[in-house]
Every structure is written in structure tokens, then in C-alpha cells.
Simulated assay, not measured.
Amino acid sequence: MLRSDVPVLSRAAGRPALPSGPMDFTEAWLRNRRLSEHTRDAYRRDVAGWLAWCGGRELDPLRASFLDVNAYARELEATLGPRTGRPLTPATVARKLSALSSWYEFLVKLRAIDGNPVSGADRPRLDRDHSATVGLTPEEVDALLAAAEAETGPAAARNRAAIALLADLGLRVGELVSLDLNDLGAERGHRSVRFVGKGGRPRRRALTPGTAYAVDAYLAARAAAEGVDVERLTGPLLATATGARLDRHSVFRLVRRLAQVAGIPAAAKLSPHSLRHAFATTARAEGVPLEDVQDAMGHADPRTTRRYDRDRHNLDRDPAYVIWAARARRRG
């Protein structure tokens, strides 16, 4: 029995059809998955891009083959990004095809099609040991936090809280801006925050004393501006002057502006994700086990966490030194 929010399939002429249009199935597919709103929007754009490509060639998406998907992928690889002016990266193309594959798998489960055409397509090869994100050294993160601390003005306290959450927790920008006030809490003596991570997985993280202080100072200032007690504040954790949710583009601009103030050379190329990379690198350099960093970052695959660790090839961390030191201790 199909769920009521899934469009009904027509089996006229012995083959299922999409009487209401493919985008209706897209919405049913998205409702069927635990995803953040940002991820839903990205997947929706990915599928819409494929459907537009099919429409321009009068190709029925239900009859597309892996050859059609290959042609689409090669065209994507030659497409210039609107912001960078450079061809889309293999990771971007792979992500678009991954979303498309999931969409088709949903149609297979509903028996709208016999097979997934993306499964046989030639997807871009990804270097799991490489990331295009510009990283930050611990000293540069300190300088960024200092620049935020030195700011004045009505948005200064909010900006300090945002940068502290990015630096100390290594949150994704989508996770940061999706936080609501009721996501804050306390568990076994820890100040904490709960949110939905990538893949729709519920997550919880501890707030460091410094981050908790920055968040409390911001909420106190916000409550005073609204003329209410902190406990009566509602809505998004990070809000604009009008009470709207702070968006990811504002956070991008904030990181780059503060980096420029801090004198960081790569300021124009930084992003909130740079702080996420710095979190992983510093945690590993300070001896935090890989599995703990992986859990903190919400990675399903430890290889992803290793890619974030910019210092992983540093010979100072070669385990040969640990083995040698242990042997030396045994010999007394």
C-alpha cells in the first residue's frame, strides 16, 4: 500500500507513468527522506537541472539510459560555475549524479521504472585525499576569533557567537544557520546543542565554555534589545535585526570580512567550511582519536574525516616515532 503523500502510479499500456509530472515525485522522494532543508533544496535543484536537460532534448526521463546520463555528466563537467567562472569540480558533478541516482532508486521502488540509469553511468573519479577548501592554521583561527571579539555594533555579539560555533564545533554552515533557540540544552553537566546533520541524522554536540559564553552574551543582548527575558526569546538561534534567520550567504561574507580584518592572506578564498577543516586538523594534531573526530563531524566514512585533516602527512606524526619511543622505554 502506497503512502498518501506519494503520487499514484498509472499503469496504462503496461508501463507506469508520471501523470502529475516528475517534480511531484521529487517532492514525494524528498518527504520520504530525513534531510535538512538546505539539502532538500540542493537535491531539488539537482533533479530539476536533469529534468530541464531532458526537456531540452525531448527525452522522457523515465526512458533515459546510462548513455543519456553520461552525456549529461560530460556536459556538467564543461559547465562554468556562476560564482567561480571555472568548470564544475568533479565533486560537484558527482554530488549531482548521486542525488539523481537516489531519485531514480525511489522510482524503481515505486515500480515506475525497471532500473536506475545512473547506476551504469560513468561518474567522475574523486580523489578522497584532496579537498579544494582553503584551510586555516590554529593561529589564523585565533586571529579570526580575535577580530570577532574586537567588533562593535548591534550585530557584533551575534557574529562572535556564530564564529565561535564554527571554530569550536566545526559545524557545517547549513547546520549553523538551521539552529533554533530550543535546540540549546544541558546534558549531564554539559551545555549542549542538538540539530539535524547531513543525511538527516540527529546530532548533539557539547558547547565549550568559550562558545557557551559567546552564545549567552549574544542572547542577553538580543533579549535586552527586544525588551524581554532571555527565556522568552523564540525562533532561530542566529537572527537578523528583523528576527529572520541568518542565512548561509551572510555567514560566508562574515568569515571573509573578519579574515580580511585579521590579515589572513587567503581571506578572499575562505569559507565557513575552512573553519570545519581547521577543527579536524587541530583536533587530530592535539591527539584526539580519529573515531572521536569522525563522530564529532558527523562523517559516515573515516576517509572523509582524514581528508579534512590537513596535517595528516606531517612526518612529526609518523607512528614510527611512537614505536621507537616505546622500544626505548622497554630497554630502559
Rank of each mutant, 00 (worst) to 15 (best):
R232A: 13
A296C: 12
L35V: 08
E37T: 07
A148P: 01
S102W: 01
E105D: 15
A167W: 04
D216P: 03
G21Y: 11
L219Q: 02
G263A: 12
K96V: 02
H299W: 07
G298L: 09
A161C: 00
L144P: 05
R310V: 10
L233Q: 09
L80N: 09
S271N: 11
R111G: 11
A268S: 15
S250R: 14
L238M: 14
R276C: 02
E75A: 14
L290E: 03
F252E: 02
E286K: 06
S250V: 10
R123G: 05
L176G: 02
S102V: 08
D301P: 00
E140L: 03
D295W: 13
A112N: 09
S10Q: 12
T234H: 13
A71W: 00
D316I: 08
P236E: 06
L184P: 01
D309M: 07
H38L: 06
A223H: 08
R306H: 07
V215H: 01
T89V: 08
R303Q: 14
V261G: 04
V230W: 08
S271G: 15
R327W: 10
E187T: 13
A300E: 09
L179C: 09
Y104R: 01
A17C: 14
H313Y: 15
G14W: 05
Q294G: 09
W29T: 00
T208W: 12
V261N: 06
C54Y: 01
L88W: 05
L165K: 01
D142C: 12
R310H: 10
R306T: 09
E27K: 06
T242Q: 15
D316K: 12
V118Y: 02
A326S: 14
R125G: 12
R83E: 10
R57G: 11
F25I: 13
Q294P: 03
D292V: 08
L67P: 03
V8M: 08
E27Y: 08
V47Q: 11
L59V: 07
D247P: 02
D247M: 06
P22H: 14
L30F: 05
A162Q: 06
T304H: 05
R123C: 06
N182W: 09
G81W: 08
A13I: 02
D114V: 12
D122E: 14
F106Y: 08
L315D: 13
G49E: 01
L51V: 00
A64H: 03
K198F: 11
P272T: 13
Y104M: 01
V134N: 08
T133P: 10
H313V: 11
D216V: 10
L237W: 05
E77A: 15
